[in-house]
Design a protein around this nucleic acid. Structure first.
Lengths: 254, 254
DNA sequence: CAGTGGTCTAGACCACCGC
DNA sequence: CGGTGGTCTAGACCACTGG
């Protein structure tokens, strides 16, 4: 679902919605800002409806409308009788949703990952544009191979904006987790909340084919991802290649 | 968005929601049934909120919750100051969303269509299952070639349940519209409201390649679609093949 | 202008959860 | 049991649309 939230309350904090701005829309933006800034960590519960409503001097129904926006946006999750919780980010195994790698027919656990290369370099014009970086900014570039049961299946090229992901440019890559998104959160405080995946088909280059143990020119599926944090900033560019014959994806139309 | 509506009111009509059933959920199901049965044709406006609320002896807010469900489901569309309208079904050009066929770089109009074959035959076990037909039921099978600017680009195989689509088994296929979904609506009274597309990759057979003017064994993208009417019944199975290198699709994650 | 949907209120009562 | 979110009410007022 596409949701455009009203602009967040400016600076310190305005205690009033802008004119022409609905109260619940403004409230949602306000709560979103507090979540993004870490006031409530993913997994924790917000104060009860009644409390929040009284705090903001607003009727229950109005507060509920604000929460509904954030729920629709995937930022919050409500549980009857328990509370309203900040959702955890994306798990990181989501790339498998595009492929049907199996082991004898059974569904597979998350693949093992190995970092092949790690470089610090200047962002290309396109990368800077997508990541919202100034011209000439540095990025961290990773090449990663993901294997299932010892067989290489996915080849990834990852670009990360650099002041933000500094902690990753020094640590020992051999000790990294198999899943990057939970590690982004733990090590860099970045929660991946949403992503856009662009799918297409191509042919493997000789280098790529060698790493995936396929023939050069073998058909491959490519997933180009832009991943966003809870504030809506793009914080990761990723290109993933895999055997086209293993590709499968289901989409809902309308 | 995935929404499970409560079961529709049984038979004639119960004037009360079942126990353990929310009033607005029941109301939504009731309105959905009236829309599906053609009481309000796509494009027409429903009675005003206040009227509907009074008719059903319910508060405004409750009625609005019911309408919100149907809006989220894509069945209704609300326009501030104008009214609440029944949405038209899918247009039928939706297959192009998976491919980037261009003519010199410009976006293209809907492709021209030609029916290659039309047969009435017994439904396979899988087709009968998917379409909710009894064993031994008949289906209409179409093979269709869609062309852009004279170039064949998509090859389709379409299966339709037969009592429902009888009007299509007799008429002259040369006079058919380029887009099938609007014709389903006009000729058979069937409104396509939603579809599930399963994407995969393969190689063209010699026959398929000849029709698409490509080489045998050329990589192709396949879209297997199940299309549903406003009542949620599956009423069309479709398999579409196109050049894999023209394929491109963008998906939202979370 | 009259009619439509959109926002907001201040309550009441219910259903679910965990202790 | 007390606390949570879920449902429902009966209003008031605003914002948009069209004649």
């Amino acid at each position: 679902m596409e949701i455009t939230l009203p602009t967040a309350p400016t600076g310190a904090n305005a205690d009033q919605p802008a004119p022409g701005q609905s109260r619940y829309g403004w409230l949602a933006a306000s709560l979103r800002a507090r979540i993004t800034q870490g006031e409530w960590v993913p997994g924790t519960a917000l104060p009860a409806e009644a409390l929040l409503a009284k705090e903001h001097g607003v009727a229950l129904g109005t507060l509920r409308q604000a929460l509904a926006l954030l729920v629709a946006d995937g930022l919050l999750e409500r549980q009857h009788g328990r509370g309203t919780f900040v959702r955890a980010g994306l798990g990181g195994a989501s790339m498998l949703r595009f492929f049907r790698f199996r082991h004898g027919g059974e569904l597979q656990a998350a693949p093992r990952s190995r970092i092949l290369t790690r470089q610090v370099l200047l962002a290309s014009a396109e990368a800077a544009e997508a990541l919202g970086l100034p011209a000439g900014a540095s990025v961290l570039r990773l090449q990663r191979l993901r294997s299932l049961d010892g067989q290489p299946v996915l080849l990834e090229d990852i670009t990360l904006p650099l002041p933000l992901f500094d902690p990753l440019s020094a640590s020992d890559t051999a000790a990294w987790d198999d899943l990057l998104y939970p590690m982004y959160q733990r090590v860099c405080g970045v929660t991946i909340h949403r992503a856009e995946d662009c799918l297409s088909f191509g042919l493997l280059s000789a280098d790529q084919a060698a790493l995936l143990k396929l023939d050069a020119g073998h058909p491959c599926a490519q997933v180009q991802r832009r991943a966003f944090d809870m504030g809506g900033r793009c914080v990761e560019l990723r290109s993933t290649l895999g055997d086209a014959f293993a590709f499968q994806y289901t989409a809902q139309v309308r």
